[in-house]
Simulated scan of single mutants.
Amino acid sequence: MARDKAYREAEQRIEEARREGVIELDLNYMKLSEIPEAIASLTQLQTLDLSGNQLTELPEAITFLTQLQTLDLSRNQLTQLPEAIASLTKLQQLHLSGNELTELPEAIASLTQLQKLNLSINQLTALPEAIASLTQLQELDLSTNQLTALPEVIASLTQLQDLNLSRNQLTVLPEAIAFLTQLQEFYLSNNQLTQLPEAIAFLTQLQEFDLSNNRLTQLPEVIASLTQLQNLDLNSNQLTILPQEIANLTHLQSLYLGENQLTTLPEVISNLVLLKTLVISVNLSKSGLH
Protein backbone atom coordinates (compact mmCIF):
# COMPACT_ATOMS: atom_id res chain seq x y z
CA MET A 1 0.00 0.00 0.00
CA ALA A 2 1.04 3.59 -0.56
CA ARG A 3 0.76 4.13 3.21
CA ASP A 4 3.33 1.40 3.88
CA LYS A 5 5.72 2.97 1.39
CA ALA A 6 5.24 6.36 3.06
CA TYR A 7 5.85 4.82 6.49
CA ARG A 8 9.09 3.20 5.32
CA GLU A 9 10.26 6.42 3.73
CA ALA A 10 9.52 8.28 6.98
CA GLU A 11 11.52 5.67 8.90
CA GLN A 12 14.45 6.17 6.54
CA ARG A 13 14.34 9.94 6.97
CA ILE A 14 14.22 9.55 10.74
CA GLU A 15 17.21 7.19 10.69
CA GLU A 16 19.18 9.63 8.52
CA ALA A 17 18.27 12.47 10.84
CA ARG A 18 19.43 10.42 13.84
CA ARG A 19 22.78 9.59 12.21
CA GLU A 20 23.41 13.16 11.11
CA GLY A 21 22.19 14.71 14.34
CA VAL A 22 19.95 17.20 12.54
CA ILE A 23 17.73 19.54 14.53
CA GLU A 24 15.04 19.98 11.83
CA LEU A 25 12.96 17.24 10.19
CA ASP A 26 10.41 17.64 7.41
CA LEU A 27 7.85 14.85 6.99
CA ASN A 28 5.06 16.92 5.47
CA TYR A 29 2.64 15.76 2.75
CA MET A 30 3.81 12.14 2.81
CA LYS A 31 0.33 10.59 3.25
CA LEU A 32 1.38 9.29 6.64
CA SER A 33 -1.43 7.82 8.75
CA GLU A 34 0.92 7.13 11.66
CA ILE A 35 4.31 8.30 12.88
CA PRO A 36 7.08 5.72 13.23
CA GLU A 37 7.99 5.03 16.86
CA ALA A 38 11.62 5.62 15.84
CA ILE A 39 10.84 9.33 16.11
CA ALA A 40 11.64 8.88 19.81
CA SER A 41 15.35 8.62 18.93
CA LEU A 42 15.50 12.23 17.72
CA THR A 43 15.92 13.72 21.15
CA GLN A 44 17.87 16.67 19.74
CA LEU A 45 15.12 17.73 17.33
CA GLN A 46 14.02 21.38 17.53
CA THR A 47 11.70 21.63 14.50
CA LEU A 48 9.31 18.92 13.26
CA ASP A 49 6.96 19.42 10.30
CA LEU A 50 4.22 16.79 9.98
CA SER A 51 1.71 19.00 8.16
CA GLY A 52 -0.49 17.75 5.34
CA ASN A 53 -0.61 14.10 6.34
CA GLN A 54 -3.45 11.81 7.43
CA LEU A 55 -2.61 11.51 11.11
CA THR A 56 -5.50 10.74 13.45
CA GLU A 57 -3.39 10.53 16.60
CA LEU A 58 0.08 11.18 17.99
CA PRO A 59 2.25 8.42 19.46
CA GLU A 60 3.53 8.41 23.03
CA ALA A 61 6.99 8.57 21.42
CA ILE A 62 6.70 12.34 21.17
CA THR A 63 7.39 12.36 24.91
CA PHE A 64 11.09 12.08 24.05
CA LEU A 65 11.20 15.18 21.84
CA THR A 66 11.92 17.43 24.78
CA GLN A 67 14.03 19.92 22.80
CA LEU A 68 11.27 20.64 20.28
CA GLN A 69 10.60 24.33 19.72
CA THR A 70 8.38 24.22 16.61
CA LEU A 71 5.80 21.51 15.85
CA ASP A 72 3.60 21.72 12.76
CA LEU A 73 0.65 19.31 12.71
CA SER A 74 -1.64 21.41 10.53
CA ARG A 75 -3.88 19.82 7.90
CA ASN A 76 -4.16 16.36 9.45
CA GLN A 77 -7.14 14.49 10.94
CA LEU A 78 -6.37 14.76 14.64
CA THR A 79 -9.40 14.53 16.90
CA GLN A 80 -7.49 15.01 20.16
CA LEU A 81 -4.06 15.75 21.59
CA PRO A 82 -2.42 13.22 23.93
CA GLU A 83 -1.40 14.03 27.49
CA ALA A 84 2.14 13.26 26.31
CA ILE A 85 2.24 16.72 24.76
CA ALA A 86 2.97 17.97 28.28
CA SER A 87 6.58 16.81 27.80
CA LEU A 88 7.22 19.40 25.08
CA THR A 89 7.98 22.13 27.58
CA LYS A 90 10.34 24.05 25.26
CA LEU A 91 7.74 24.38 22.50
CA GLN A 92 7.45 27.96 21.18
CA GLN A 93 5.27 27.36 18.12
CA LEU A 94 2.45 24.84 17.76
CA HIS A 95 0.48 24.67 14.52
CA LEU A 96 -2.74 22.64 14.59
CA SER A 97 -4.80 24.35 11.90
CA GLY A 98 -7.11 22.21 9.79
CA ASN A 99 -7.68 19.24 12.09
CA GLU A 100 -10.79 17.86 13.82
CA LEU A 101 -10.08 18.86 17.42
CA THR A 102 -13.16 19.28 19.61
CA GLU A 103 -11.28 20.12 22.81
CA LEU A 104 -7.83 20.81 24.22
CA PRO A 105 -6.30 18.68 27.00
CA GLU A 106 -5.37 20.10 30.38
CA ALA A 107 -1.80 19.04 29.51
CA ILE A 108 -1.53 22.13 27.35
CA ALA A 109 -0.85 24.00 30.59
CA SER A 110 2.71 22.62 30.51
CA LEU A 111 3.57 24.50 27.31
CA THR A 112 4.51 27.64 29.18
CA GLN A 113 7.08 28.79 26.58
CA LEU A 114 4.54 28.83 23.76
CA GLN A 115 4.54 32.06 21.77
CA LYS A 116 2.45 31.09 18.75
CA LEU A 117 -0.57 28.76 18.79
CA ASN A 118 -2.65 28.15 15.67
CA LEU A 119 -5.90 26.24 16.23
CA SER A 120 -7.85 27.59 13.27
CA ILE A 121 -10.25 25.40 11.30
CA ASN A 122 -11.07 22.88 14.01
CA GLN A 123 -14.27 22.08 15.94
CA LEU A 124 -13.52 23.64 19.31
CA THR A 125 -16.58 24.68 21.30
CA ALA A 126 -14.73 25.97 24.38
CA LEU A 127 -11.27 26.72 25.73
CA PRO A 128 -9.97 24.99 28.87
CA GLU A 129 -8.98 26.88 32.01
CA ALA A 130 -5.48 25.49 31.39
CA ILE A 131 -4.96 28.07 28.67
CA ALA A 132 -4.25 30.54 31.48
CA SER A 133 -0.77 29.00 31.81
CA LEU A 134 0.28 30.15 28.32
CA THR A 135 1.45 33.51 29.60
CA GLN A 136 4.14 33.95 26.90
CA LEU A 137 1.66 33.61 24.04
CA GLN A 138 1.94 36.39 21.46
CA GLU A 139 -0.18 35.00 18.60
CA LEU A 140 -3.36 32.97 19.05
CA ASP A 141 -5.46 31.91 16.06
CA LEU A 142 -8.84 30.37 16.93
CA SER A 143 -10.62 31.34 13.73
CA THR A 144 -13.15 28.98 12.14
CA ASN A 145 -14.17 27.02 15.21
CA GLN A 146 -17.45 26.80 17.15
CA LEU A 147 -16.63 28.91 20.19
CA THR A 148 -19.66 30.46 21.86
CA ALA A 149 -17.77 32.23 24.65
CA LEU A 150 -14.30 33.07 25.93
CA PRO A 151 -13.23 32.08 29.44
CA GLU A 152 -12.35 34.81 31.94
CA VAL A 153 -8.88 33.25 32.27
CA ILE A 154 -8.02 34.75 28.90
CA ALA A 155 -6.99 37.70 31.09
CA SER A 156 -3.75 35.79 31.80
CA LEU A 157 -2.57 36.09 28.20
CA THR A 158 -1.13 39.53 28.77
CA GLN A 159 1.57 39.21 26.08
CA LEU A 160 -0.90 38.60 23.25
CA GLN A 161 -0.32 40.82 20.23
CA ASP A 162 -2.44 39.04 17.63
CA LEU A 163 -5.79 37.38 18.45
CA ASN A 164 -7.96 35.90 15.72
CA LEU A 165 -11.48 34.81 16.71
CA SER A 166 -13.11 35.21 13.31
CA ARG A 167 -15.79 32.76 12.17
CA ASN A 168 -16.98 31.50 15.53
CA GLN A 169 -20.31 31.88 17.36
CA LEU A 170 -19.42 34.51 19.93
CA THR A 171 -22.30 36.66 21.16
CA VAL A 172 -20.37 38.64 23.80
CA LEU A 173 -16.80 39.47 24.76
CA PRO A 174 -15.78 39.10 28.42
CA GLU A 175 -14.59 42.12 30.42
CA ALA A 176 -11.38 40.10 30.87
CA ILE A 177 -10.14 41.32 27.50
CA ALA A 178 -9.22 44.52 29.35
CA PHE A 179 -6.01 42.73 30.37
CA LEU A 180 -4.87 42.16 26.78
CA THR A 181 -3.17 45.55 26.73
CA GLN A 182 -0.44 44.51 24.24
CA LEU A 183 -2.96 43.51 21.58
CA GLN A 184 -2.19 45.03 18.17
CA GLU A 185 -4.41 42.92 15.89
CA PHE A 186 -7.89 41.72 16.90
CA TYR A 187 -10.04 39.82 14.40
CA LEU A 188 -13.68 39.15 15.26
CA SER A 189 -15.40 38.98 11.89
CA ASN A 190 -18.29 36.59 11.30
CA ASN A 191 -19.51 36.18 14.87
CA GLN A 192 -22.81 37.21 16.49
CA LEU A 193 -21.70 40.18 18.57
CA THR A 194 -24.43 42.72 19.30
CA GLN A 195 -22.29 45.07 21.38
CA LEU A 196 -18.74 45.74 22.54
CA PRO A 197 -17.79 45.83 26.23
CA GLU A 198 -16.39 48.94 27.90
CA ALA A 199 -13.24 46.87 28.42
CA ILE A 200 -12.06 47.61 24.89
CA ALA A 201 -10.96 51.00 26.24
CA PHE A 202 -7.82 49.26 27.56
CA LEU A 203 -6.72 47.98 24.15
CA THR A 204 -4.77 51.14 23.50
CA GLN A 205 -2.11 49.47 21.30
CA LEU A 206 -4.67 48.13 18.83
CA GLN A 207 -3.86 48.84 15.18
CA GLU A 208 -6.12 46.36 13.33
CA PHE A 209 -9.71 45.76 14.47
CA ASP A 210 -12.00 43.62 12.31
CA LEU A 211 -15.62 43.50 13.46
CA SER A 212 -17.22 42.86 10.09
CA ASN A 213 -20.22 40.55 9.73
CA ASN A 214 -21.58 40.85 13.26
CA ARG A 215 -24.78 42.36 14.67
CA LEU A 216 -23.48 45.57 16.21
CA THR A 217 -26.06 48.33 16.43
CA GLN A 218 -23.75 50.93 17.95
CA LEU A 219 -20.17 51.57 19.06
CA PRO A 220 -19.37 52.48 22.66
CA GLU A 221 -17.97 55.94 23.36
CA VAL A 222 -14.82 54.33 24.75
CA ILE A 223 -13.83 53.60 21.16
CA ALA A 224 -12.10 56.97 21.58
CA SER A 225 -9.34 55.23 23.55
CA LEU A 226 -8.12 53.25 20.53
CA THR A 227 -5.93 56.10 19.34
CA GLN A 228 -3.38 53.83 17.58
CA LEU A 229 -6.01 52.20 15.39
CA GLN A 230 -5.09 52.20 11.69
CA ASN A 231 -7.71 49.90 10.18
CA LEU A 232 -11.28 49.49 11.44
CA ASP A 233 -13.64 47.14 9.61
CA LEU A 234 -17.32 47.47 10.53
CA ASN A 235 -18.79 46.17 7.27
CA SER A 236 -22.03 44.19 7.47
CA ASN A 237 -23.34 45.15 10.89
CA GLN A 238 -26.51 46.98 11.95
CA LEU A 239 -25.03 50.36 12.86
CA THR A 240 -27.44 53.28 12.66
CA ILE A 241 -25.06 55.96 13.92
CA LEU A 242 -21.38 56.58 14.62
CA PRO A 243 -20.32 58.21 17.88
CA GLN A 244 -18.65 61.63 17.80
CA GLU A 245 -15.72 60.01 19.62
CA ILE A 246 -14.61 58.43 16.37
CA ALA A 247 -12.81 61.73 15.79
CA ASN A 248 -10.18 60.57 18.32
CA LEU A 249 -8.97 57.83 15.98
CA THR A 250 -6.51 60.16 14.33
CA HIS A 251 -4.23 57.37 13.06
CA LEU A 252 -7.05 55.71 11.13
CA GLN A 253 -6.15 54.92 7.53
CA SER A 254 -9.03 52.62 6.56
CA LEU A 255 -12.63 52.70 7.75
CA TYR A 256 -15.14 50.18 6.39
CA LEU A 257 -18.80 50.98 7.04
CA GLY A 258 -20.48 49.19 4.14
CA GLU A 259 -23.75 47.29 4.54
CA ASN A 260 -24.98 48.96 7.72
CA GLN A 261 -28.01 51.18 8.39
CA LEU A 262 -26.26 54.52 8.61
CA THR A 263 -28.22 57.52 7.46
CA THR A 264 -25.47 60.06 8.05
CA LEU A 265 -21.83 60.38 9.04
CA PRO A 266 -20.68 62.71 11.82
CA GLU A 267 -18.93 65.86 10.58
CA VAL A 268 -16.01 65.11 12.89
CA ILE A 269 -14.99 62.37 10.50
CA SER A 270 -13.14 65.14 8.66
CA ASN A 271 -10.66 65.13 11.58
CA LEU A 272 -9.34 61.78 10.36
CA VAL A 273 -6.71 63.38 8.15
CA LEU A 274 -4.76 60.13 7.55
CA LEU A 275 -7.84 58.33 6.23
CA LYS A 276 -7.13 56.85 2.79
CA THR A 277 -10.02 54.40 2.48
CA LEU A 278 -13.63 55.08 3.49
CA VAL A 279 -16.23 52.53 2.43
CA ILE A 280 -19.89 53.46 3.00
CA SER A 281 -21.57 51.48 0.21
CA VAL A 282 -24.97 49.82 0.67
CA ASN A 283 -26.36 51.83 3.59
CA LEU A 284 -29.82 53.36 3.78
CA SER A 285 -30.18 55.40 0.61
CA LYS A 286 -32.70 57.93 1.98
CA SER A 287 -29.81 59.82 3.56
CA GLY A 288 -27.70 60.03 0.49
CA LEU A 289 -25.28 57.37 1.75
CA HIS A 290 -24.85 54.67 -0.87
Rank of each mutant, 00 (worst) to 15 (best):
L219Y: 08
E185W: 00
P197M: 08
S225H: 13
F209D: 02
T43L: 00
T63N: 10
L25H: 07
E267P: 00
P128V: 08
P266Y: 08
E175Q: 13
P151V: 10
I269F: 00
L249Y: 04
I131S: 02
L165H: 03
R18P: 05
A84E: 15
T144Y: 12
T56V: 12
S87F: 14
I200P: 04
E11R: 15
T217S: 12
S225I: 00
Q228K: 14
K286L: 11
Q192A: 08
A130C: 08
L257H: 02
N248H: 14
S41D: 13
Q159S: 04
L257Y: 03
S270L: 04
I14V: 09
T240S: 11
T79Y: 00
I62W: 02
S225P: 01
I39N: 02
T47A: 12
Q228I: 05
T158R: 11
F209A: 07
A130H: 08
N248V: 01
S110V: 00
L265I: 05
L137T: 05
I23S: 14
N118S: 13
S270P: 01
N235A: 13
E267I: 01
R3Y: 15
L65I: 08
S156V: 02
L137H: 03
T217H: 08
F64D: 12
L165G: 04
E267L: 05
I280H: 00
A10F: 09
L101Q: 02
E106S: 01
L150H: 03
T79A: 10
L140M: 06
L272W: 06
T63M: 07
E208F: 07
T79K: 12
I241A: 13
L289Q: 10
E245Y: 01
I246C: 08
E259H: 12
T263A: 05
L242T: 05
L206G: 07
L216T: 11
Q80M: 10
T250W: 06
L265K: 01
S133A: 14
Q207T: 12
L255Q: 00
T264Y: 09
L289D: 07
L262T: 06
G21H: 10
A155C: 02
N164K: 02
A126S: 12
D210T: 03
S281G: 11
D141L: 00
L289G: 09
V172A: 13
Q192D: 09
L278S: 07
L94C: 09
D49W: 04
E208K: 14
P243W: 11
T56W: 00
E57V: 10
E60S: 11
T171W: 06
A224F: 08
L32V: 12
A86G: 03
Q161P: 06
T264N: 00
A201D: 11
A38I: 00
R3N: 15
L73T: 09
T89S: 13
G21N: 11
E24W: 06
A61M: 04
P151D: 09
I246L: 12
E9P: 01
T194Y: 01
L211T: 09
L71F: 14
S74K: 07
V268W: 01
N28A: 12
E106P: 01
T277I: 14
L142Q: 05
L274D: 09
L272H: 02
V153H: 05
S254Q: 14
L165F: 01
L249G: 02
N214R: 12
N190C: 03
S166E: 02
L274Q: 15
L170R: 01
L104V: 07
